[in-house]
């Protein structure tokens, strides 16, 4: 007899993961203000910043504002870090996106420091970013982010950030 658990139907898995991601991203007003969205392939996230005139920092070139680039990278780092730490809970069903609809957001990591390197000017078109979590401990995490536009091999900005992790589970009873 086969005792192995049957895999869940694909739609159930997708629905659960997409609902969790949507809850995480759409709960933050500033992410909505900039218009940042996230593409998901399995557990891999790509942040997308659709170009808009309000993002311009240099109207003569024109180029995306350096502050927008910094914010885009920081949003990517925080969401990807949260996503990575919440993944287990999302998969076991312990993380319930329904709770988020009622305003119960999971506590997000706090930025301790964030360093942005501007490699090229941000062109007036869509930008993409991916984060790599280099360390994720109980208290501290370190994340590297790269953003690009036309060519993945030619990033226009990169950043490294250090974060203070939110207290989890039973620890949250402060």
């Amino acid at each position: 007899m086969n005792t192995r658990k049957r895999p869940e139907p694909v739609q159930v898995v997708k629905q659960r993961r997409d609902a969790a991601l949507k809850a995480l991203v759409h709960g933050v007003p500033y992410i909505q203000f900039l218009g940042v969205e996230f593409d998901r392939r399995g557990d891999e996230l790509t942040a997308v910043l659709p170009f808009a005139d309000k993002l311009i920092g240099n109207p003569i070139l024109p180029a995306i504002h350096g502050g927008v680039t910094a914010a885009f990278l920081e949003i990517t780092a925080v969401i990807c870090l949260s996503w990575a730490t919440l993944w287990e809970e999302i998969e076991t069903g312990a993380f319930d996106p329904e709770n988020l609809v009622g305003g119960k957001m999971p506590r997000l990591p706090k930025t301790v420091s964030f360093t942005v390197d501007y490699l090229r000017s941000g062109l007036p078109r869509d930008a993409y970013a991916r984060a790599q979590v280099n360390r994720s401990g109980r208290r501290y995490a370190s994340v590297h982010v790269e953003a690009w536009q036309d060519n993945r091999e030619r990033p226009f900005a990169q950043a490294t950030g250090h974060f203070l992790m939110p207290k989890r589970g039973l620890e949250s009873e402060e």
Partner: peptide, 10 residues
């Protein structure tokens, strides 16, 4: 958001 503070500082 820290990003808004970054934009002002930049």
């Amino acid at each position: 958001h820290g990003g808004a503070v970054s934009a002002l500082l930049d």
